[in-house]
Design a protein around this nucleic acid. Structure first.
Lengths: 174, 174
DNA sequence: ACCTGAACACCGTTCAAGT
DNA sequence: ACCTGAACACCGTTCAAGT
């Protein structure tokens, strides 16, 4: 006899993402997710292979969210930089997860589209990919270090961000 | 009656680092470390508080190693970039660990010294910190993405690295 | 067909008892 | 003073038995 479903893959991934932000990766246990979905831990395995697959699904949800935000942003490198950084601050744990082991690579490619377009507008099509990688690497590294608390030698971090962006644009502008 | 020590903190940290590179963070169990040190897991707790403290100690060892390598490098941003990237490739798991939760922040500051000096040589003392942050963020993000397999849109990654370095130097050079 | 309790393997950690 | 086996708590995962 069929039973009405008491949860869904989407609910599980949402719960996982919320718990990740609240309690970090160590807090993201199958138990915690199950409780939040009103179900027992073994039931989760009907919907998702294992915890690694859940982490991958959460990472993909985060990347898709980021891609939407970037797609809605004015298509300039400075506007994209602001959006990217703001998103990372709002989703610190999810942001870290994005670049981890089983990263959602296809989704990342998709998120890169607006950056490629904005880069092409500055340096032309031939160098667009190189320029996009310069920009993305800088923004990713900056936020990563910022979230890790690695900027401790004094100085204004906001200013450092603006400075970096300006110098990159200076370097790229023909 | 005193017993001769059968291991040491240094041996434990070395074992942890080796296991981390071989088997990743999930493989770095107290059991695995203990076996490698010829001792049982509970004995480790005489030398180190818990697994988190071990991870922190491993991270610090990695950063100190990196600091030595950078200090031995010719003091130019391009030479430092090569050394930094090579180190990250040789110590992929350790590199990831460096920017994690309980990062060894003091050691990171120390590793930053040569980068600050090389930056000052290009932009002067006033902007040296901003410039060092631009450079470090870019290099860190680039290697991070590279290690995560995030560069998949084609194009030559070596070229992208050279391109990024050149454009940053272009942007920084007055 | 989904859900669950029970069970198992594995890991971190503590501790009393050895030497 | 360090080392160990035994024990405990906790987590991921499987599975037979329920509905």
């Amino acid at each position: 006899m069929p039973t009405p479903d008491r949860t869904s893959l989407a609910e599980i991934v949402d719960a996982g993402r919320a718990i990740l932000e609240e309690s970090g990766p160590a807090g993201l246990t199958m138990q915690a997710v199950a409780i939040r979905c009103g179900v027992r831990a073994p039931s989760l395995y009907k919907r998702i292979r294992d915890r690694d697959a859940l982490l991958a699904a959460v990472a993909e949800a985060v990347v898709n969210d980021l891609a939407d935000r970037l797609a809605d942003t004015e298509n300039s490198l400075s506007a994209l930089a602001e959006t990217y950084r703001a998103f990372a601050h709002e989703n610190a744990e999810g942001f870290r997860l994005m670049f981890t082991a089983s990263a959602p690579l296809d989704a990342l490619d998709h998120a890169a589209t607006p950056v490629l377009a904005a880069s092409a507008a500055v340096v032309g099509d031939v160098d667009a990919l190189h320029a996009a990688r310069l920009f993305t690497a800088w923004a990713t590294g900056f936020v990563h270090m910022e979230l890790a608390g690695a900027f401790r030698l004094g100085g204004d971090v906001e200013q450092a961000f603006t400075y970096g962006l300006r110098k990159i644009l200076d370097g790229l502008t023909p």
